[in-house]
Design a protein around this nucleic acid. Sequence first.
DNA 1: CTTTGTGCAAATTCTTTGCACCAAA
DNA 2: TTTGGTGCAAAGAATTTGCACAAAG
Lengths: 138, 138
Amino acid sequence: MRTTSNVVNRLEEAGVKPSVQRMAIMKYLVDHPVHPTVDMIFHALFPAMPTLSKTTVYNTLKLLSEEGVVHSIDIDEKNVRYDGDISPHAHFKCKGCGAIIDLHIEMPDNKHIANFSDLKIDECQLYYKGYCKNCITM
Amino acid sequence: MRTTSNVVNRLEEAGVKPSVQRMAIMKYLVDHPVHPTVDMIFHALFPAMPTLSKTTVYNTLKLLSEEGVVHSIDIDEKNVRYDGDISPHAHFKCKGCGAIIDLHIEMPDNKHIANFSDLKIDECQLYYKGYCKNCITM
DNA sequence: CTTTGTGCAAATTCTTTGCACCAAA
DNA sequence: TTTGGTGCAAAGAATTTGCACAAAG
């Protein structure tokens, strides 16, 4: 299957051993670009993997985001969200339904901040909040 | 005192009754633009206000941010930060010392997203992470 | 009085930790 | 074996909730 080999590659390239659990979590993220929470991932995988523990999901996502294989997203005050798409893009959160949507717009240029040269910037997150199509009318 | 009357004005303009506690919290935010957590605010005010409860700090900040008097900042995974400066600006978080610094740079133009016209955007947050001057060398 | 704000204590929720067991090299 | 991964149960930390009391008009 296409995704599976991609997933193995992405893990191995980052020096992460592709265990069954790690591959399942990574594959889930790639196949479900909805920026799921730990809980969502756990409940999605549990039926097919009844020995999976939430601790492992936490451990894995922590490892993967430290290694840069996935991104963690703090757009939601309540839970951390995870994104398997690490290309630069912004996010929009609907305050009505809670959905988090990718915005593939141009990200701000870090050179703008060359002035603030006493900072070493290595991450940038751009978040928008408002209401999506379905929630505007309500 | 300058700040106090400003604080009263900002609360009243938003239709928030200026109780002693609310004024103290608002004044603290304006006078200490370090994007404090609930806990920091509580511990700063408690000595002079021994009956203050953390619940009231939570209640007040929730109310103030709902009314747009302050901004809540999700740059830190662990605790929500609050900002009394509601002018548009970006934030930088040092991954070394944890400091959160204002970046008064131009914010991205929402018109860029006019294409995504099926979204009603009413908030924008721009976060940078990295290392500050003092933490780069370590 | 009546409404609104405050604050204690308990409950909830998300996340981390300690430790024992399992698996792969 | 030895190292690293997994998972349970417990701990920890941040925030919310329920309810009684206090304050203000």
